[in-house]
Design a binder for these strands. Structure first.
Lengths: 189, 189
DNA sequence: ACCTGAACACCGTTCAAGT
DNA sequence: ACCTGAACACCGTTCAAGT
């Protein structure tokens, strides 16, 4: 909102979200956001109980957007389950390259008190993956195990990327590996 | 060291390491460690340039211990490569349950400026895994790809555990999955 | 050579006082 | 109803002064 005017809680979340996008939840600082908004941090406490409340609002917004993207992906027509899985993994691999706020989320979730939200998103991802794998004719329990294992591998690759461990495994190999885990099923029951 | 006496840099690292063990690198706070040692934080700056130097010393110590454990494992006689791999993965799965300082390391490494050390440890883990897989008669490039993929999956499961996402996949299943990835080779090249 | 104590910066939080 | 400004706590950092 314009300097000098009055602000809503939403304006605070907008400004905080920009900082989150750039630097993760750790960059969501009351004083800094107040500066961005051209107001004082004292005014922040009119709208929110404390910093954790703001961090939580930002994460909830991230969850909503993540869900939208999920639905958009699922709704998009075209293709066998295999093709959809391939599309999904290749999008994930591509986003892996960008070190944005989301990339930091799993790392920061616990310290910032939003582990529950990240857990919820994880469950959605697993459910969606399991659904696609199930569409290949795989039994439901096995489909879930494969979904968890391939999600875990993708998250692990993200972590290795965080410490800049390249491991000579590129985007294409990551995509192929995740797809192979999902479709050819290496997961023991 | 006893209160009132004089302290060495090592004493500071000892005390800081205890805090790391309990709460990760984030718990390594100059003021708190000074309190533990019964001295003032001002005195800290005689021994160290700043907090990052202390954090780095703690991580270097962690690396040394991690290496020791690695060597101990590798040297331990007995068993085919398969048996050693199984032992390795089951130990990792077991440690996954404990939420200690190490569990937080990958998350915090970048923010704390010790990504290089964690990267080095990752490379050792991959090299060791690749060596065992290579002993199964697998070609060297393929062995490395399998090593990276199985390490990534284990790290990813750790992350999911951090947000307490259980996913109905237990320790035994994790072990079996990692082993299957390493030995039966789902990784596309 | 090693430490204390006071000072400052930065950020989260509270609150009396203003509009 | 919403905000300012000052205050305090906590922690990292510096430094003059002490032993």
């Amino acid at each position: 909102m314009a300097r000098g005017g009055t602000r809503s809680a939403d304006d605070w979340v907008d400004a905080a979200y920009e900082r989150f996008d750039a630097g993760g939840l750790g960059a969501v600082k009351v004083e800094a956001v107040a500066r961005d908004l051209g107001t004082t941090k004292g005014s922040f406490y009119w709208h929110f109980a404390d910093r954790p409340a703001l961090v939580r609002a930002v994460t909830v917004r991230w969850e909503a957007r993540e869900t939208d993207r999920f639905i958009a992906r699922a709704e998009r027509p075209g293709g066998s389950p295999q093709e959809r899985l391939a599309r999904l993994f290749s999008e994930v691999a591509e986003r892996n390259r960008v070190r944005d706020g989301e990339a930091a989320l799993y790392r920061e979730a616990e310290a910032e008190g939003v582990a529950d939200i990240v857990r919820r998103v994880s469950e959605r991802r697993v459910a969606y993956l399991a659904e696609l794998i199930g569409a290949l004719g795989i039994e439901v329990g096995e489909a879930r195990r494969r979904a968890v294992a391939s999600l875990a591998m993708v998250l692990g690759m993200q972590q290795l990327a965080h410490v800049r461990y390249e491991a000579h495994v590129d985007e294409a190999a990551l995509t192929a590996t995740a797809l192979a885990m999902a479709t050819s099923g290496v997961v023991a029951s």
